[in-house]
Computed example of a mutant assay.
Amino acid sequence: MGHDPADHVFLDPLAAAPPARAGDHPAALRLGTFDGATVVVMRFAAGQRLDAHRAPHAITVQALTGELDFRVGDESGRLTPGRLVYVRAGVHHAVHAPVESVMLLTLHTGDEAGFRHSGPDRD
Rank of each mutant, 00 (worst) to 15 (best):
D4C: 03
P5C: 04
A6L: 15
H8F: 15
F10Q: 12
L11F: 00
D12V: 07
P13R: 05
L14G: 10
L14N: 14
A16M: 12
A20I: 13
A22V: 13
G23Q: 05
G23T: 07
G23D: 13
G23S: 06
D24Y: 12
D24P: 00
P26T: 08
P26K: 01
L29A: 11
R30A: 14
L31W: 04
G32M: 08
G32L: 03
T33M: 06
T33Y: 03
F34M: 03
F34E: 00
G36L: 09
G36I: 11
A37D: 07
T38L: 04
V40W: 04
F44E: 01
F44G: 01
F44L: 03
F44Q: 01
A45I: 08
A45H: 06
G47Q: 05
Q48N: 06
D51Y: 13
R54M: 11
R54W: 05
A55H: 14
A58W: 00
A58S: 12
I59E: 00
Q62F: 13
A63T: 01
T65D: 01
D69L: 15
D69C: 13
D69N: 11
D74E: 15
D74W: 06
R78H: 05
R78A: 07
L79S: 01
L79F: 06
T80F: 00
P81I: 03
G82N: 05
G82Q: 01
L84W: 04
Y86D: 10
Y86V: 12
V87A: 07
V87R: 00
R88Y: 03
A89S: 10
V91E: 12
V91N: 07
H92Q: 14
H93G: 07
V95E: 04
V95W: 02
H96W: 10
A97I: 03
A97P: 05
A97H: 02
V99K: 08
V99P: 01
E100C: 01
E100A: 12
S101N: 02
V102Q: 01
L105E: 03
L107I: 05
H108F: 09
T109H: 05
T109D: 06
D111W: 06
D111C: 10
E112K: 14
E112R: 15
E112G: 01
G114M: 07
F115A: 11
R116C: 11
S118V: 05
